[in-house]
């Protein structure tokens, strides 16, 4: 279903240089698993903590402390009360790693990115958020979080194989499907509401050794993802669904 999209997303043109002590724990493997070229530069003792310098199309794109990357990827994703500390890092990681196809993504990484998308939707409290689960019964564990999210005013659309009848929640529309086309995908897409520049989405497919997928901040791409999802449940217009919920 999303295979052609996965194929069309370009391979990375990013270059990552990991600055770290030789014996420091490192994030090289993580980048390597994501088909991203990594260089390594030794850091002198007594100098800075490990960090990653990023180049994009040959241009310097920023520096991410390894601690920040690890914090982002370690479940549970801890969010401070103020967004001053972490949010710029999340944003930068999105910018920096946008639309790179990753192989062997770990589940926790997908969770971290999913949380960022959900948080963004919750902060804005507008627009629509589309989320797919392998089976609707998986959504059970997400009920409290999504009930809260729906209270912010975000219209939520949940997709998944029809194996459970979830409870009605104001603001949440279910799109059960039985054709088995969604089962292997992990999709989270937010349209940004009144501000399409806040669009963001994650698409991943489960494979034998993890997930292969990408995430994006491009509103065009997010719109394409949403249109694909709409084909899952063509009988139910999403626009109608939105309006009946408010």
């Amino acid at each position: 279903m999303f295979d052609s999209m996965l194929a069309s997303v370009q391979q990375s043109t990013h270059r990552f240089t990991v600055y770290a002590d030789d014996d420091a724990p490192s994030v090289d493997d993580w980048f390597a698993n994501h088909s991203v070229a990594v260089d390594r530069q030794p850091l002198f003792p007594g100098g800075p903590d490990p960090f990653v310098a990023v180049e994009r199309d040959g241009e310097f794109a920023g520096v991410l402390p390894v601690a920040v990357i690890e914090r982002l990827l370690e479940p549970p994703v801890v969010r401070p009360q103020t967004t001053d500390g972490l949010s710029p890092a999340y944003r930068a990681l999105f910018e920096v790693l946008d639309e790179t196809v990753y192989t062997s993504m770990a589940r926790r990484e997908l969770l971290a990115v999913s949380r960022e998308i959900e948080d963004r939707a919750g902060r804005l409290g507008t627009g629509s958020l589309h989320v797919s689960f392998q089976r609707l019964s998986v959504f059970r564990t997400q009920l409290p979080a999504y009930s809260k999210l729906a209270e912010t005013g975000v219209a939520i659309h949940v997709y998944g194989e029809d194996d459970w009848m979830p409870p009605a929640i104001p603001g949440v529309v279910y799109h059960p499907e039985s054709a088995g086309s969604m089962g292997e995908y992990w999709v989270v897409a937010f349209d940004g509401g009144d501000d399409p520049t806040q669009s963001c989405a994650l698409v991943a497919r489960e494979e034998a050794d993890g997930y292969r997928g990408f995430w994006t901040n491009h509103e065009e791409m997010v719109a394409r993802i949403r249109r694909r999802l709409e084909t899952v449940d063509p009988d139910q217009s999403l626009t109608e669904g939105d309006s009946t919920l408010r």
């Binding site: 600055y19 100098g47 800075p48 903590d49 960090f51 310098a53 520096v63 920040v68 890092a89 930068a92």
Partner: peptide
């Protein structure tokens, strides 16, 4: 000199736990 600048920016970023942008460098 550019490499030195990257290290100095990285030093600041790791100290403050924030992300450095191209303008910082």
């Amino acid at each position: 000199v550019e490499e030195v600048a990257t290290v100095l920016v990285g030093w600041d970023a790791t100290e403050s736990g924030t992300v450095a942008h191209p303008d910082d460098r």
